[in-house]
């Protein structure tokens, strides 16, 4: 038994469609015979990669003209739901995905299930799993209301699999009149340049937290990450403090990472940080407090001062060449 139609909200990336969105398309194609994608900021070439991941059709919303993407795409979806009645709609747990899910939910009077990390078919509907209390308990939930179920899904919950299907057909639609919601407009975008592998795709992630003491010490994190061909990450504490941009944040509100090894330096291990990195294959933690929660999930824990351990570690790896 499977569902007949699932819609997926997909976001663009430098290379086409974001990996998180492709994960959702792959997941959807495992549950429904037809997968249709709603996207923006891409051309008709996106039909190729979406098709390979299991989508039959891509609706590309044009003419956002500064309107926040989540708001704009949700209005297009809302107009089409009555006639096309999908069984479920998937959104990523990103700023845009949450905006879109929230707008659509309130517009159509449909409930949402958020922070989803797994889905199962339960008769003719989907049941979601979400991790609570920092991932120590798993709650299974489902919709009781009729109408399409809106699921907001965390990154890296499903694998993005190219099944080599043919390109999805592409339908371009322009954003119509969307009322007061459309009055918020982007007047300028700022992209913070970064080099090296992407945080959520790097095989090695070295993250720093408040235990680094001062912004300047973050240079050690960057240097170590570079030496290991990895990406530097951060706890929210130092993002909020303005030491590094939000794009570096790992955790509940930031990126979910699943590297081969995650090295946490001066990070306490708050539940909201751990949900973003618990999936790492190996975890190394350096923290001067032997009771820091991060040690409960570390494969190797060093109770020590980052100011002492990191410089020596960097030297040792450098000398190995």
């Amino acid at each position: 038994m499977s569902l007949s139609k699932i819609w997926v909200f997909a976001e663009p990336s430098e290379s086409g469609i974001s990996t998180t969105s492709l994960e959702l398309v792959s997941a959807a194609s495992g549950f429904a015979s037809t997968v249709e994608v709603f996207c923006y900021g891409v051309g008709s070439e996106a039909g190729q990669v979406l098709g390979e991941h299991g989508a039959a059709k891509a609706v590309v919303v044009k003419g956002l003209d500064g309107v926040l993407a989540g708001t704009g795409v949700a209005s297009v979806m809302a107009q089409r739901i009555p006639a096309e009645s999908p069984d479920a709609i998937f959104f990523g747990s990103t700023p845009e995905g949450r905006d879109a899910a929230a707008r659509l939910s309130a517009k159509m009077d449909l409930p949402v299930l958020t922070n989803v990390v797994n889905l199962q078919l339960d008769g003719d509907r989907l049941m979601s799993e979400n991790a609570v209390f920092g991932g120590s308990e798993i709650v299974s939930a489902r919709f009781t209301a009729s109408g399409p179920g809106i699921f907001v899904i965390r990154a890296k919950s499903f694998a993005a699999e190219s099944k080599g299907g043919s390109a999805a057909s592409v339908e371009e639609v322009s954003l119509g009149e969307i009322g007061s919601a459309g009055k918020a407009r982007i007047v300028q975008s700022h992209v913070e340049a970064r080099t090296g592998p992407k945080l959520d795709e790097a095989p090695v992630v070295v993250s720093g937290g408040r235990g680094l003491g001062q912004p300047d010490s973050y240079k050690m994190i960057e240097e170590l990450a570079k030496l290991l061909n990895g990406a530097p990450g951060a706890s929210r504490a130092i993002v909020d403090a303005g030491w590094v941009p939000y794009a570096y944040q790992v955790g509940q509100t930031g990126k979910t990472v699943k590297p081969t090894v995650y090295i946490a330096c001066g990070i306490s291990g708050a539940t909201q940080h751990m949900v973003g990195m618990k999936g790492a294959k190996n975890i190394i933690a350096i923290n001067k407090d032997a009771d820091a929660p991060i040690f409960t999930i570390a494969d190797l824990g060093i109770v020590g001062d980052v100011q002492k351990v990191l410089p020596k570690l960097i030297e040792a790896i450098k000398s190995k060449g």
Binding site: T94, A184, V187, S189, H190, V191, E192, A247
Partner: peptide, 8 residues
């Protein structure tokens, strides 16, 4: 995801 937007 990549920086920030100025929104009015």
């Amino acid at each position: 995801e990549s920086g920030y937007d100025e929104v009015e």
